[in-house]
Amino acid sequence: MNAANLLEIHGLHLYFDTYLGTVRAVEGLDLTVSRGETVGLVGESGCGKSVSALAILGLISQPPGRIAGGKILFKGEDLLKKSPAELRNIRGKYISMIFQEPMSSLNPVYRVGDQMVEVIMLHRRVSRGEARKIALEMLHEVQMPDPEAVMQKYPFEMSGGMLQRVMIAMELSGKPDLLLADEPTTALDVTVQAQILRLMKNLVKKMNASVLLITHDLGVVAQTCDRVAVMYAGQVVEVAPTEELFTDPRHPYTRGLMGCFPDPNRQDAELAAIEGTVPDLINPPGGCRFHPRCPRAGDICGKEGPGPVAISDDHVVHCFFARQASDDHSEGGTGKGVAVLG
């Protein structure tokens, strides 16, 4: 394990046993997050982003979930081998998580302050009075107006944006090394979204924490991430530094996603959609999982899975045509349906 890496996921296989069959939600996920880095994990709903994050914290209930293989190394230690007690000690203290719905993420029958104090007392081993002070400080850090009053409020008395600030304050109060943020702004208004992202970015930088930001929104990625991993049907298909991903996307799926994203410089351009639907993960397509929807799939794509192709040191693509892909892109995209229709 590279010492600079805080988190390394190697070949994670995560299955869910259902009545209809085994859902192979995550198959061979590789991902690294180094210290102080913000990594975006991008993909459509159901591609396995959220369950991967839950797996890091050991929050996949088994059954129906099943970790069928792989390693999740955090500071060099495999989280999958930790006992429940060891995992509890890691949760919230070394790795925290923020969820999509701030409205339902806090317990409705307890005051916001009491919930923060509970977590702070657990991880910082301080007195109740000390914990209250820390909670107030954290609320101040997330630029909450009148933190004293906020401490006394119940979750249902607050707006989604305010609650997400509380969540951020609460989850960062333990000074975690890694913050998992699962669509933290999806449920919020666009204006609030930008504020929250900026706030999170600044705070995390100040604390030198790493972030794994899960989102389906490329705008969010562009705004916050140092590096991006694009996920499709339970596998990472492309990893690149954010800027490089936007300027030189190599995987046809990544380029499809870009096509779904409005380009302010091309007002005449219609938004493209990626044809077809997300594959059935009980019987995923053989070979490259994207090949049935891929505009440039060849014979080989249905037969074997593409290995990693390194475009540069930190740009890796899982596609047989990765090296040729950039040529097509410079032409403005062609092929069946993926491309931006000019």
Binding site: L57, L59, L87, R88, N89, I90, R91, G92, K93, S96, M97, F99, E101, S104, S105, L106, N107, P108, E118, V119, L122, H123, M167, M170, E171
Partner: peptide
């Protein structure tokens, strides 16, 4: 099954 229970778990509560 509520989300605040998941939050509590993610926070490492017993």
């Amino acid at each position: 099954n509520q989300e605040y229970i998941r939050t509590a778990r993610a926070n490492g509560l017993s």
